[in-house]
Amino acid sequence: MRGGPTWGGGLLLAALAGGFPGRGAQDPGSAPASVPVERCLECHAGAARDVASGAHAALENRCTGCHGGNPSSFDERRAHTGKFRAVPLSACAACHEAEAEAFAGGPHGVAFETKAIRGCVECHSFHAVPRPDHALLRSSCRICHETNAPEIVESGRQTADDLDRLESALAAAARALDEAERRARIVRREREGLEADRLGLLALLPKQHAMDLEPFRSDVAALRARAESTGARAAALLEETGRRRRWAWLVGALVAANALAILWRRRTLLAARPHP
């Protein structure tokens, strides 16, 4: 993966980036904000490709955001000086503070301290960090626990199922509320409730990193019950709105019957009237 620096490409990149930094122009160890292109991919093209395919693709400082170092340097030693770090937990914690805190307080935190695992990357992979997905709970646990603790694997699978069901309930409730609102129903309170549940889920998700999954699952179940109740209220509103359409048919029939009665009465009167 690591090859010699391609100076021609680097110079071209620097020129395209709008400048040619002179040797020693930058303070080694600092990553100046004005450098728009990280030169890490000169040697780490594979890693850069992986990052671009993952959840961190949209980050401006894809490499230095986690690894530090000096991205403007063409020199390998200088590029890896300063605050350079390989795969530190603190890099993840900079953005994912709540997750890192829960992780540190759980059994995986202890394992990390004793260097039995390498931190977040153990489950979330290195550069091609997948987007947040509950499926990870189904796949990652068995990497270490399939033989030594199958109950953990099962618990992870059940937690993933619970989270999927919760998200389905939230999405179904949102769809039902949209439809009810489209039919001129007032759903402000239900929307506020659903928004609170969404925020509740966002606040809850980091806690799964403590790996104490039973209380986590009961919190997820409580949220799901609330979302399902909102969805049921929206469904009831929609059903009641549907009943209105049946009333419309009845009104239409009454109007038609009344119109016919009036016409018949008028016709009778006109027939009984002597011709002028």
């Binding site: 001129a184 209105r244 009104v251 109007v255």
Partner: peptide, 18 residues
């Protein structure tokens, strides 16, 4: 009668929102 019917149907089928 027809006009009232139209009004009732509009009110039922396209209720005024807020």
């Amino acid at each position: 009668n027809l006009a009232l019917g139209l009004l009732f149907l509009l009110a039922i089928l396209a209720p005024a929102g807020l």
